[in-house]
């Protein structure tokens, strides 16, 4: 037996694949867009953090638990407790109202409405998305607030025992987180509806036929095939809506009668939100006050990130069962 040298391996050949100019340009453009997005996000995060640190380092109270916002006092007092509470609560109210209605409208357009009716409804929903938020704010303040007085009294009378719907002063104007929630619900309705409608349209015909052939009624087809398939898309749609609700400024500032009090009674005209507080205080704030407001903006940014992360986890958790691997 002779030892032989290992068979000569062929020298690694540099294979050159042909690339065409069109491909190179397009891949460069799309890569550039992707990088641009990351740069913008990073720039916002760095700006917010840098300015926020300047303010928080001079803060004497606890930034997260203080109710009052008065950065011009000496020593300055400012905290985000009321703002965080108001932002989250009004957004939750908005989601509780908007998501079921939006999914209902999307299902109506795709599955129930005759084609003559579905088109116009979808068009009206699109129009709703085009209304500027200050217009919603004016409508909310001048129409919604006076007209919600009756509903407020009714809720206080019959559901006051739930604590949530108890109104401390029944005669106070309904410029409350509850009213803000209703207004936000109307504002986020179009985006949730439109995205849900598109997702529901994507449900493959064969999945619906599978349910039909088993003898499912129209509602059972929706329950068996349509909603499970569209579930993750509807969650994403809701997150888009929630993002808008969390950050909405003008409509809230016009409607809410802000005060630095934290109340579990959502009908009381109390509280505030991040954006509303920024727009109300920014004009008269000095350099330091602005840094403080930016710090509150950073908290809103973080809350939004957390909410989106939570939504991703929900979508991911049942990925194995999602329609994606059908």
């Amino acid at each position: 037996m002779t030892t032989t040298a290992p068979p000569p391996t062929a020298p690694p050949q540099k294979t050159r694949t042909v690339t065409r100019p069109g491909d190179r340009i397009f891949s460069g453009l799309s890569r550039g867009s992707g990088i641009f997005l990351l740069v913008v996000m990073a720039a916002i995060a760095i700006f917010l953090t840098y300015r926020a640190v300047q303010a928080i380092s001079k803060d004497h109270g606890n930034f997260l638990t203080t109710f009052e916002w008065n950065a011009s006092l000496n020593p300055p007092v400012f905290g985000v407790a009321v703002l965080a509470y108001g932002t989250v609560v009004s957004s939750i109210i908005a989601m509780l109202i908007a998501v079921p209605i939006a999914v209902g409208i999307a299902l109506f357009i795709t599955h129930y409405a005759p084609r003559r009716l579905g088109g116009p409804i979808a068009y009206v929903i699109d129009l709703l998305a085009a209304v500027p938020s200050i217009v919603y704010g004016l409508w909310g303040a001048l129409f919604l607030v006076p007209h919600l007085r009756g509903l407020n009294l009714w809720l206080d009378k019959y559901f006051g025992w739930t604590y949530i719907f108890h109104k401390q002063d029944p005669n106070s104007a309904p410029r409350s987180l509850f009213t803000v929630g209703i207004l936000l619900a109307i504002m986020i309705l179009p985006i949730i509806t439109n995205v849900s409608r598109e997702v529901i349209r994507q449900v493959p015909r064969m999945h619906e036929e599978a349910a039909l052939a088993l003898g499912a009624t129209r509602w059972e087809v929706i329950r068996l095939s349509v909603l499970p398939f569209a579930r993750s898309g509807i969650i994403s749609a809701s997150m888009l809506g929630l993002g808008r609700a969390l950050g909405e400024t003008m409509a809230v500032a016009t409607v809410l009668s802000a005060s630095p009090q934290l109340s579990g009674h959502i009908l009381d005209p109390l509280g505030g939100t991040f954006s509303q507080n920024i727009v109300a205080k920014f004009g008269e704030a000095d350099e330091f006050g602005r840094d403080a407001l930016i710090a509150s903006g950073l908290v809103l940014f973080i809350i939004t990130l957390l909410v989106n992360g939570a939504a991703r986890i929900i979508i991911q958790r049942r990925k194995e069962y999602s329609g994606a691997n059908a």
Binding site: A210, A213, L214, S225
Partner: peptide, 30 residues
């Protein structure tokens, strides 16, 4: 009628969001 006359399609179409068990049980639950 469709509960009396069953159908199998050209492309396999189990409910993608359901387990094997739930797929078979779907019609029974209906």
């Amino acid at each position: 009628v469709r509960r009396t006359v069953g159908m199998v399609f050209q492309r396999p179409n189990p409910f993608p969001t359901m387990s094997i068990y739930d797929n078979v049980a779907a019609g029974l639950r209906l």
